[in-house]
Protein backbone atom coordinates (compact mmCIF):
# COMPACT_ATOMS: atom_id res chain seq x y z
CA UNK A 1 0.00 0.00 0.00
CA UNK A 2 1.71 3.19 -1.07
CA UNK A 3 1.31 6.51 0.64
CA UNK A 4 0.20 8.20 -2.54
CA UNK A 5 -2.71 5.89 -3.15
CA UNK A 6 -5.95 7.80 -2.76
CA UNK A 7 -7.86 6.15 0.08
CA UNK A 8 -10.80 8.50 0.33
CA UNK A 9 -12.16 11.78 -0.93
CA UNK A 10 -11.25 14.86 1.10
CA UNK A 11 -8.24 15.61 3.25
CA UNK A 12 -5.73 12.77 3.06
CA UNK A 13 -3.18 11.91 5.69
CA UNK A 14 -1.07 10.34 2.95
CA UNK A 15 2.65 10.20 3.56
CA UNK A 16 2.40 12.19 6.76
CA UNK A 17 0.92 9.26 8.67
CA UNK A 18 0.83 6.12 6.58
CA UNK A 19 -0.66 3.82 9.21
CA UNK A 20 -3.67 5.99 10.01
CA UNK A 21 -4.00 6.75 6.33
CA UNK A 22 -4.63 3.08 5.64
CA UNK A 23 -7.04 2.65 8.53
CA UNK A 24 -8.92 5.73 7.43
CA UNK A 25 -9.95 4.07 4.17
CA UNK A 26 -13.23 2.49 5.21
CA UNK A 27 -13.79 4.77 8.20
CA UNK A 28 -13.88 7.95 6.12
CA UNK A 29 -15.66 6.33 3.18
CA UNK A 30 -18.33 5.09 5.57
CA UNK A 31 -18.79 8.60 6.88
CA UNK A 32 -19.20 9.96 3.35
CA UNK A 33 -21.94 7.39 2.81
CA UNK A 34 -23.60 8.42 6.06
CA UNK A 35 -23.50 12.08 4.99
CA UNK A 36 -25.10 11.02 1.72
CA UNK A 37 -28.08 9.54 3.53
CA UNK A 38 -28.24 12.59 5.78
CA UNK A 39 -28.27 14.71 2.63
CA UNK A 40 -31.31 12.73 1.45
CA UNK A 41 -33.12 13.79 4.62
CA UNK A 42 -32.32 17.44 3.96
CA UNK A 43 -33.28 17.10 0.30
CA UNK A 44 -36.69 15.77 1.27
CA UNK A 45 -37.22 18.55 3.79
CA UNK A 46 -36.26 21.11 1.13
CA UNK A 47 -38.80 19.52 -1.20
CA UNK A 48 -41.45 19.56 1.52
CA UNK A 49 -40.65 23.22 2.19
CA UNK A 50 -40.98 24.03 -1.48
CA UNK A 51 -44.36 22.34 -1.70
CA UNK A 52 -45.69 23.97 1.47
CA UNK A 53 -44.36 27.48 0.79
CA UNK A 54 -47.73 28.77 -0.50
CA UNK A 55 -49.59 27.31 2.49
CA UNK A 56 -49.41 30.43 4.66
CA UNK A 57 -53.18 30.35 5.31
CA UNK A 58 -53.36 34.08 6.08
CA UNK A 59 -50.54 33.88 8.60
CA UNK A 60 -47.03 35.32 8.42
CA UNK A 61 -45.33 35.03 5.02
CA UNK A 62 -41.63 34.57 4.21
CA UNK A 63 -41.32 38.22 3.21
CA UNK A 64 -42.69 39.26 6.63
CA UNK A 65 -40.35 37.13 8.64
CA UNK A 66 -36.96 36.86 6.98
CA UNK A 67 -34.34 39.51 7.73
CA UNK A 68 -31.33 39.87 5.46
CA UNK A 69 -28.74 41.27 7.85
CA UNK A 70 -28.85 38.64 10.63
CA UNK A 71 -28.93 35.75 8.17
CA UNK A 72 -26.02 37.27 6.27
CA UNK A 73 -24.02 37.53 9.49
CA UNK A 74 -24.94 33.92 10.33
CA UNK A 75 -23.72 32.90 6.88
CA UNK A 76 -20.42 34.68 7.37
CA UNK A 77 -19.97 33.12 10.81
CA UNK A 78 -20.59 29.61 9.54
CA UNK A 79 -18.46 29.97 6.40
CA UNK A 80 -15.62 31.38 8.48
CA UNK A 81 -15.94 28.47 10.90
CA UNK A 82 -15.56 26.08 7.98
CA UNK A 83 -12.35 27.89 7.02
CA UNK A 84 -11.00 27.72 10.57
CA UNK A 85 -11.81 24.03 10.73
CA UNK A 86 -9.84 23.64 7.55
CA UNK A 87 -6.89 25.26 9.33
CA UNK A 88 -7.34 22.81 12.20
CA UNK A 89 -7.24 19.90 9.73
CA UNK A 90 -4.08 21.26 8.13
CA UNK A 91 -2.53 21.66 11.57
CA UNK A 92 -3.35 18.01 12.31
CA UNK A 93 -2.05 16.74 9.00
CA UNK A 94 1.26 18.53 9.17
CA UNK A 95 1.93 17.79 12.80
CA UNK A 96 1.78 21.39 13.99
CA UNK A 97 1.79 21.94 17.74
CA UNK A 98 -1.17 20.63 19.68
CA UNK A 99 -1.89 24.17 20.86
CA UNK A 100 -2.38 25.30 17.29
CA UNK A 101 -4.81 22.47 16.56
CA UNK A 102 -6.77 23.12 19.75
CA UNK A 103 -6.75 26.83 19.05
CA UNK A 104 -8.33 26.49 15.63
CA UNK A 105 -10.87 23.98 16.97
CA UNK A 106 -11.70 26.50 19.72
CA UNK A 107 -12.20 29.32 17.21
CA UNK A 108 -14.46 27.03 15.16
CA UNK A 109 -16.45 26.20 18.25
CA UNK A 110 -16.92 29.85 19.17
CA UNK A 111 -18.06 30.71 15.64
CA UNK A 112 -20.47 27.75 15.70
CA UNK A 113 -21.94 28.81 19.02
CA UNK A 114 -22.21 32.38 17.72
CA UNK A 115 -24.16 31.07 14.75
CA UNK A 116 -26.47 29.08 17.01
CA UNK A 117 -27.06 32.04 19.28
CA UNK A 118 -28.00 34.32 16.39
CA UNK A 119 -30.25 31.68 14.87
CA UNK A 120 -32.06 31.14 18.15
CA UNK A 121 -32.49 34.89 18.42
CA UNK A 122 -34.07 34.93 14.95
CA UNK A 123 -36.46 32.19 15.97
CA UNK A 124 -37.43 34.08 19.15
CA UNK A 125 -38.33 37.13 17.07
CA UNK A 126 -40.39 34.98 14.72
CA UNK A 127 -42.16 33.39 17.69
CA UNK A 128 -42.96 36.80 19.17
CA UNK A 129 -44.48 37.80 15.82
CA UNK A 130 -46.79 34.81 16.07
CA UNK A 131 -44.83 32.92 13.41
CA UNK A 132 -44.97 29.58 15.23
CA UNK A 133 -44.98 26.15 13.58
CA UNK A 134 -48.57 25.46 14.60
CA UNK A 135 -49.73 28.54 12.68
CA UNK A 136 -49.51 27.15 9.12
CA UNK A 137 -48.16 24.42 6.88
CA UNK A 138 -45.53 26.82 5.56
CA UNK A 139 -44.22 27.59 9.05
CA UNK A 140 -44.29 23.88 9.95
CA UNK A 141 -42.04 23.10 7.02
CA UNK A 142 -39.73 26.02 7.85
CA UNK A 143 -39.38 24.86 11.44
CA UNK A 144 -38.64 21.30 10.39
CA UNK A 145 -35.91 22.27 7.93
CA UNK A 146 -33.95 25.18 9.42
CA UNK A 147 -33.80 24.07 13.09
CA UNK A 148 -32.76 20.59 11.96
CA UNK A 149 -29.68 22.22 10.47
CA UNK A 150 -29.25 24.12 13.73
CA UNK A 151 -29.51 20.86 15.63
CA UNK A 152 -26.74 19.46 13.43
CA UNK A 153 -24.56 22.48 14.26
CA UNK A 154 -25.31 21.89 17.94
CA UNK A 155 -24.25 18.23 17.70
CA UNK A 156 -21.18 19.30 15.73
CA UNK A 157 -20.27 21.73 18.52
CA UNK A 158 -20.62 19.02 21.17
CA UNK A 159 -18.47 16.81 18.99
CA UNK A 160 -15.80 19.53 18.76
CA UNK A 161 -15.68 19.70 22.56
CA UNK A 162 -15.40 15.89 22.76
CA UNK A 163 -12.57 15.90 20.24
CA UNK A 164 -10.71 18.69 22.07
CA UNK A 165 -10.89 16.62 25.25
CA UNK A 166 -9.66 13.57 23.34
CA UNK A 167 -6.75 15.46 21.81
CA UNK A 168 -5.77 16.45 25.36
CA UNK A 169 -6.30 12.92 26.72
CA UNK A 170 -4.90 10.72 23.99
CA UNK A 171 -2.85 13.06 21.86
CA UNK A 172 -3.18 12.38 18.17
CA UNK A 173 -3.62 8.62 18.08
CA UNK A 174 -5.14 6.95 15.02
CA UNK A 175 -8.72 7.05 16.30
CA UNK A 176 -8.51 10.72 17.20
CA UNK A 177 -7.13 11.53 13.77
CA UNK A 178 -9.82 9.53 11.98
CA UNK A 179 -12.57 11.09 14.08
CA UNK A 180 -11.18 14.59 13.47
CA UNK A 181 -11.31 13.87 9.75
CA UNK A 182 -14.91 12.72 10.08
CA UNK A 183 -15.83 15.76 12.13
CA UNK A 184 -14.27 17.93 9.44
CA UNK A 185 -16.45 16.37 6.77
CA UNK A 186 -19.48 16.84 9.00
CA UNK A 187 -18.72 20.50 9.64
CA UNK A 188 -18.16 21.30 5.95
CA UNK A 189 -21.34 19.40 5.10
CA UNK A 190 -23.29 21.69 7.43
CA UNK A 191 -21.85 24.62 5.50
CA UNK A 192 -23.10 23.20 2.23
CA UNK A 193 -26.56 22.66 3.68
CA UNK A 194 -26.59 26.18 5.09
CA UNK A 195 -25.70 27.67 1.72
CA UNK A 196 -28.74 25.85 0.31
CA UNK A 197 -30.90 27.13 3.18
CA UNK A 198 -29.63 30.68 2.73
CA UNK A 199 -30.32 30.66 -1.02
CA UNK A 200 -33.49 28.59 -1.21
CA UNK A 201 -35.19 29.63 2.02
CA UNK A 202 -34.00 33.11 2.95
CA UNK A 203 -33.00 34.79 -0.33
CA UNK A 204 -35.91 33.32 -2.26
CA UNK A 205 -38.29 34.24 0.54
CA UNK A 206 -37.11 37.85 0.59
CA UNK A 207 -37.46 38.24 -3.17
CA UNK A 208 -41.11 37.29 -3.07
Amino acid sequence: MSADEVRQAGLELGRNDLLTHEQAGSAIFGFWVFLMSDAVIFALLFATYGVMLPATVGGPTPADEYKLVPTLIETVLLLTSSFTFGLASVAMKHGASRRQLLGWLGVTLILGIGFLGMELHDFMIMFSDGAVPSRSGYLSSFFALVPLHGLHVFFGSVWIVVMMVQVLTFGLDARVKVNLQRLGLFWHFLDVVWIAIFSVVYLQGMIQ
Partner: peptide, 22 residues
Protein backbone atom coordinates in the same frame (compact mmCIF):
# COMPACT_ATOMS: atom_id res chain seq x y z
CA UNK B 1 -42.58 9.30 10.49
CA UNK B 2 -40.67 12.22 12.06
CA UNK B 3 -42.95 14.80 10.44
CA UNK B 4 -46.01 12.83 11.54
CA UNK B 5 -44.56 12.81 15.06
CA UNK B 6 -44.08 16.60 14.88
CA UNK B 7 -47.74 16.91 13.90
CA UNK B 8 -48.86 14.75 16.80
CA UNK B 9 -46.50 15.98 19.52
CA UNK B 10 -45.83 19.64 18.73
CA UNK B 11 -48.94 20.65 16.79
CA UNK B 12 -47.21 21.09 13.43
CA UNK B 13 -49.37 20.99 10.30
CA UNK B 14 -47.72 18.79 7.72
CA UNK B 15 -50.48 16.32 7.06
CA UNK B 16 -53.49 17.69 8.92
CA UNK B 17 -56.72 18.64 7.20
CA UNK B 18 -56.51 22.24 8.36
CA UNK B 19 -54.01 25.14 8.32
CA UNK B 20 -52.28 24.19 5.12
CA UNK B 21 -51.45 20.55 5.88
CA UNK B 22 -51.30 18.24 2.88
Amino acid sequence: TALLALDRYLDFHFFTNDLGGN
